[in-house]
Amino acid sequence: MFNIIIGQYVPGQSVIHRLDPRAKLLAVFLFVIIIFLANNWVTYALAIIFTLLGVFLSKVPVRFIYRGLKPIIIIIIFTFILNVLFTKEGELLVSYGWFHIYEGGLIQAVFISMRLLVIIVATTLLTLTTSPIDITDGLEILLGPLKKIKLPVHEFALMMSIALRFIPTLLEETEKVMKAQSARGSDFTSGSLKSRVKAIIPLLVPLFVGAFKRAEELAMAMEARGYRGDVGRTRLRQLIWSLSDTFLMLVTLFLTAALFILRG
C-alpha cells in the first residue's frame, strides 16, 4: 500500500550525484530566487538551459522527473488558462463574445508556467540526486553559523535524521492499525464527515501510543550509550568540498549576473 522511497532518491554516480550536498543546496536555493529576475525570452531560455543541463548531467531517467511533475501538471494548466483569460495587456489576438485572448496574457501565462516548471524540476533534481541523510548533513553545516545566536542547529538536524529514520516504520504501523480497525468495522474512506472524524480517533490513539513508546526506548538507548549532544561529536561521513562544487557555485553566480544584465 505504501510503497514509497523517501525523498525519491535515485542512487547514481553522475557528476550531479557526486556534488557536495552543501553546494547543491546553495545552488538550488539561489536558483529559485534568481529565477524571479527572468522576465523576457532570453532570461527564461538561460534558466531553462541551466536546468536541462542539470537533468542531462544527472543521468536520472526522465520518467523520474516526470513523476515529480505529474501531481502539479493540472495546476500548471489551470494557472496557464487563468492567466490567459484574465490578463488584458497588449494586442487583442482572439475575440469571441466574452472570450478574449490578449498577447500580453498569453506571454505572461507562458512565463509563469515556465518559471514553475523550472523551479519544480530544479528542486526535484536535488532530492533525486541527494540522499535525505546527505541533505540533513549539508543543512546542518550550512546553518552552523546560526548556533551563534543560540539556535539549536545540531538538535534540529538530529531530529530530522530521527524523523527520516522512523517515517517508514510509522507508515507501516499506520497501515497495520488501519487494517486492524477496518477489520473491526471502521470506515476511513466513506460516510459523513462526522463518522470519518470519529474513525480518525481510534487510528491516531494507537499510533501515538506506539510512537511514544518507540521514542522512550530510543531516548533510553541514546542515554545509555552516552549521547551528550553536539560537543565533541565526530562524524562517520565527512563532506568533502571539491573543485566541481566550486565550479557549480561559479556557474550559478554567472547565471545570476547574466539574468541581471539581460532582463528587460
Binding site: 505504501f2 516504520t169 510509522l170 510512537a211 531516548a219
Partner: peptide
C-alpha cells in the same frame, strides 16, 4: 535540550509525515 525532547519531537515529525501520506 533533553534527549527525551529531541527524540520525542523527531518521532512526532515522522508521525506528521506518515499521517500526511495516508491522506
Amino acid at each position: 535540550m533533553k534527549v527525551k525532547t529531541l527524540v520525542g519531537n523527531g518521532i512526532v515529525a515522522a508521525l506528521y509525515i506518515a499521517v500526511s501520506f495516508v491522506i
